[in-house]
Each structure stands twice: as structure tokens, then as C-alpha cells.
């Protein structure tokens, strides 16, 4: 759905985006992570046709963004990191205005507006002035606006920024619904744990460069050279340690109270073989699991002090 190749954006001598490459298949949610000033918003604005790239290629649905900027805008729904609402309009008027821009027939507008307001849980505010809405509601209205023309690709720049925890949960829920509806979503955020839950793919950008990109598990694997497994036993802790040492792909074993933590390099099949061996040797295994790396740790690891690792 979205393909970015060797994207460069410079402002004088300052390089905002430096040879960025990115690909998002249809129906995927791609989390775009990076510290402030990393180039996330610049990249998103280039995709949305709000900035021109210095060089490189951006294709949305196999159409070049720079050459067909008007056509491409029908396929993209952009939500910036600010509200951008007309305070002097009512909620329905606001959506109706954008619907008219996309030449949606008047008969269809009401249904689309109603459906969108239901999606973002603002049906009860349809006749309220935008001015009277809370921050979270305005953010949701902005999201509804970006969906008014049923775009294939949604570009959401920090949609949860500045929202209280409840509003964040609500926003996350809406994004899950959009994922279920098959929308391709590029979302940037600083709330990495939320992205990990929501996104199928993650890309970490720093100083305009894509530091790492791939599925969440791929990234974990790339960043951490080995996985960490943890098991809890009822008894026979030392015996369990001996069994684990028999496997060449296990190292750095540390013992706790009835628990063992060890580094592991191998496939899921290798892991199940280890568990089977432990059980057949009579080790009373209570739990056996892989420790998930924290995305925040990954972020810090690859973008330490603004320097790419």
C-alpha cells in the first residue's frame, strides 16, 4: 500500500529525512517511532502531499505521490498532531464541510457522518459546537474527518498525544476497529507500549534515518541477539539447570528461587524440545515462557543519546 524509497528531505544544510526506506503492506498497522525532531512528521507530511521531497520516491497504492498529488489525496486520510478544527461549526457541519470537499453526494453525507460519529463515539455530540468538545473528543472528531472519504491509507501523527489515559484507551479501541476494517495505518507515537500492542510492524527513526524496521518480534530479535526464557519449577532446580546446560543453544543461566532464566538462540521448535526434555526427565515445570523485550528498551538501545547504535 505504501512504499517509500530513498526519501530525502533537506532544509538548507539540515537533513530532516535521510535516505528513508519503508514499506507497508495493505491492512497492516505500522508504528513510526522516534524521538522529537527525528523526521516522523516530515515523512508523514511528504506522504500526505503537504511537503515535497528533496529526492526519493513515495508510492501510495502504486501511484507516485509527487506526480499525482491530487489523485493520491483521495486514498489518504491525514490526521496531524494538532486538532485543526473550526470552533464555530457544529460537529455535523464540520464533517459535512469535508464531505463536500470530497464531493460526496448530499444524500450519502448524513449516513457517512452518522456512521463516523458512531465509530468515534460522538453520536451524542452531533449538534454541539466543536468549541464545546473536550480535547479527546476533538481528537476523535479529527480522526472522523480523516476518514470521511473512506481512505485506504490512514496517516496518524501522534493521535494519542496530550490525551488523558481514558481518552487514550478510547482512541486505541477506535484504531483497533479501523484495523479490523482493513485500513492500512501509519501511526506515530511516543507511547511505545501502546504501539507494540496495536501495530503489526514498527519502524524506529532517528536523525532522519530509519534505524530499524520490521515486525515487532523481528525487531526484538534483531535488537536482542538472543531470546530470554524463564521457567519455574516446583522442585529439582539443580537438575533442571543440568538439563538446560545440555543444550548448546542455551547460555547465561541464572538461578532464582524456584526459577531459572537463560539466554536462548533458536527456533520455537527448539524451545518446545527443551520443554519436552525437561518434562520427560521428571522436572516438575510449573511455567515455561519467553520473556518479551520491552519496546522502550529497544527504543533506548537503538537511539541512545540521539546516536544510532
Amino acid at each position: 500500500m505504501l512504499k517509500i524509497k530513498d526519501l530525502v528531505k533537506t532544509y538548507g544544510k539540515f537533513v530532516a529525512v535521510n535516505n528513508l526506506n519503508l514499506e507497508i503492506p495493505q491492512g497492516e498497522i505500522y508504528g513510526f517511532v522516534g524521538p522529537n525532531g527525528a523526521g516522523k512528521t516530515t515523512t508523514m507530511k511528504i506522504i500526505s502531499g503537504l511537503l515535497t521531497a528533496t529526492s526519493g520516491e513515495v508510492m501510495v497504492d502504486n501511484v507516485d505521490v509527487t506526480r499525482n498529488s491530487r489523485k493520491i489525496k483521495e486514498s489518504i486520510g491525514y490526521m496531524p498532531d494538532f486538532f485543526g478544527v473550526y470552533d464555530d461549526l457544529k460537529v455535523t457541519e464540520y464533517l459535512d464541510f469535508y464531505a463536500s470537499i470530497y464531493k460526496i453526494k448530499e444524500k450519502e453525507r448524513k449516513k457517512i457522518t452518522d456512521d463516523l460519529l458512531e465509530l468515534v463515539d460522538l453520536s451524542n455530540k452531533r449538534e454541539s459546537y466543536v468549541d464545546s468538545l473536550s480535547r479527546g473528543m476533538k481528537q476523535r472528531l479529527c480522526l472522523a474527518r480523516s476518514l470521511i472519504h473512506n481512505p485506504k491509507l490512514l496517516i496518524l501523527d501522534e493521535p494519542a498525544s496530550g490525551l488523558d489515559p481514558r481518552a487514550r484507551v478510547e482512541m486505541k479501541e477506535i484504531l483497533r476497529n479501523l484495523k479490523d476494517m482493513g485500513k492500512t495505518i501509519l501511526i506515530s507515537s511516543h507511547i511505545l507500549s501502546e504501539l507494540a500492542e496495536l501495530c503489526t510492524h514498527i519502524g524506529i527513526i532517528d536523525n532522519g534515518k530509519m534505524v530499524i524496521s520490521g515486525s515487532v518480534s523481528e525487531i526484538m530479535q534483531q535488537v536482542y541477539s538472543s531470546r530470554v526464557i524463564k521457567l519455574k519449577v516446583n522442585d529439582k532446580l539443580e537438575q533442571a539447570e543440568m538439563v538446560l546446560k545440555e543444550f548448546p543453544n542455551i547460555d547465561k543461566i541464572t538461578l532464582g528461587e524456584n526459577t531459572i532464566q537463560a539466554g536462548f538462540e533458536g527456533s520455537d521448535q527448539d524451545m518446545s524440545r527443551i520443554l519436552a526434555t525437561l518434562v520427560t526427565r521428571g522436572i516438575p515445570v510449573v511455567t515455561f515462557s519467553q520473556l518479551d523485550g520491552n519496546l522502550e528498551d529497544v527504543f533506548m538501545k537503538v537511539t541512545r543519546g540521539g546516536e544510532v547504535q
Binding site: 507530511k45 502531499g49 491530487r70 489525496k73 496531524p80 494538532f82 478544527v85 470537499i101 470530497y102
Partner: peptide, 14 residues
């Protein structure tokens, strides 16, 4: 100033 210009510009309105 209202931050609505970008929203207009990212639509297909010339």
C-alpha cells in the same frame, strides 16, 4: 493560526 490550513491542503481541493 487555527491550524486548519494543512487539513484543507491535504484534501483534493485545489
Amino acid at each position: 493560526e487555527k491550524q486548519t490550513l494543512d487539513l484543507l491542503l491535504c484534501t483534493k481541493l485545489p
